[in-house]
Design a protein around this nucleic acid. Structure first.
Lengths: 263, 263
DNA sequence: GTCGGATGTTCCATATAATGAAACTGTATT
DNA sequence: AATACAGTTTCATTATATGGAACATCCGAC
């Protein structure tokens, strides 16, 4: 039950409206009926209808005639592959994630920031290395995850303030930080420490240590985390892995740098 | 060097044009400059320019000011996650792929058809991983891959004819089928056999056996393949795995069926 | 430094495509 | 049969996209 700020922003032109519809269909997480979308939208019936038709004919949505429902289309998967490969840290970070995974044996996440939210772009499981965006593409909240806080902490002040205000502050657990003030204080502490911890703030029993990935100019590129269950590890235990974590984060930052400026 | 038919189809409305631009940016496989896109597009400068601006402001593209290049944006990854989870066979097939992987130990691909092309939606690596790049979201040709031929073979005749005509018939290897006639004959043989083989038609040294995943009504849902390197296995060797392959394909089909019609 | 040429950006009258109220069709429900 | 509801189509109106051309900016060459 995750009430993220459902934006609504400045939808420029027809394309913006169409993409807004895409978002809503995707956000539903299951096939949706026309009426459902109509209820949640401020477009008139006919307009929404034609948008859906266009998107369907474009392969961005799939329409199930039998059940009269819309779902995101596979064309997206194709496009996203290109995005993942070119515009995410994942391909660059891959070998370093592999090495870190080998070294610490715990679950690892690589994340980036997208519109105030955490977007996971790669992952290593505690055991078998299922590579790929089965899990990548998943989003999470910024204010109560290790990677989210690590990235927020190192944003430029104004961006940070804006991002903090976009958070929902839903109390996922008793430990979740539920106010902008509390979060802002925490972020200052994280800047001082260089790493962030998730102290069961998102899911009970799940803790993590995370470090930002920063460019040489100090810009936030992403974040890296090591996750564990409280029954298998402790915050102190994770803190032992801090050198491995920050070292890897720096390697990824360096690799990204070379990639950005080849000659 | 993969010259797929670059479609050009019926781009309805502004949304269609915008998505066409997205495709071109994604197809480039690297950040592209305005001029490059302009050259490959039949839109006038100003039109293309505004389309790019809209897409960028929507997060569908990322614009690198320094290099003046466009690349697919991370918003896509978010949307695609939803598509992958809801509209692909991958989540349903996951346990069966795991089991098959355990059983045969070779590289496995799960694919679906998208606009005449093969879209890979999941994968398991071989125990001794062959160096082969294919990940979810990747696309491949229909006429010279095991999964592609398996799906084409079982399409309804008219769809099949249309799909066959959309192929590029580029000769990736000496063994590639390079004419619609040759492919059509092969597809008939595959229908009779129930499985297809890739006899180094796409990459030298890489062979595979593939089976279609068919709904109870005979509709093509996707295809499943087992891949190997010629230095480690033979077509006959792969044929030994046919029961495991077809069995898994049937299990996935059955699972998809239940998923489609829960009550 | 100045010129030439290419690349990227803005303008604005026009044409086109999106809009949405309302009418219509089909399918459940009583 | 009557009613309600979800989905689809119509069409005059309006907003939006269009694209030719002018403008700006960058960069290498002379």
């Amino acid at each position: 039950m995750n009430r993220q700020t459902t934006q609504g922003g400045h939808a420029d032109g027809t394309v913006g409206k169409a993409l807004d519809v895409m978002d809503r269909v995707a956000a539903a997480g299951r096939p949706v009926r026309f009426a459902e979308l109509l209820a949640g939208s401020d477009h008139p019936k006919a307009t929404l209808y034609r948008l859906l038709q266009t998107l369907t004919s474009q392969g961005m949505l799939i329409y199930d005639e039998a059940r009269q429902t819309y779902a995101p289309g596979l064309r997206l998967v194709r496009l996203a592959h290109a995005a993942w490969q070119q515009s995410s840290l994942a391909p660059i970070a891959r070998p370093y994630l592999d090495a870190l995974s080998e070294r610490v044996g715990e679950t690892i996440h690589l994340a980036q920031m997208d519109q105030g939210q955490v977007l996971y772009v790669d992952k290593r499981n505690a055991r078998r290395p299922v590579d790929m965006f089965s899990e990548a593409g998943k989003i999470g909240p910024g204010y109560c995850t290790g990677v989210g806080k690590a990235m927020l902490a190192f944003l430029p002040p104004d961006d940070r303030a804006r991002a903090v205000n976009m958070q929902s502050f839903f109390a996922h657990t008793p430990r979740t930080l539920t106010s902008p003030q509390a979060l802002t204080e925490e972020l200052a502490a994280i800047r001082a420490a260089g790493v962030s911890f998730d102290r069961e703030e998102h899911e009970p029993g799940i803790i993590c240590i995370a470090a930002p990935i920063l460019s040489s100019t100090g810009r936030v590129l992403g974040a890296l985390s090591i996750t564990a269950a409280t029954r298998r590890n402790t915050l102190d235990g994770l803190d032992q892995l801090r050198p491995a974590l920050t070292e890897t984060a720096e390697q990824i930052a360096a690799a990204a740098e070379t990639w950005q400026f080849p000659d």
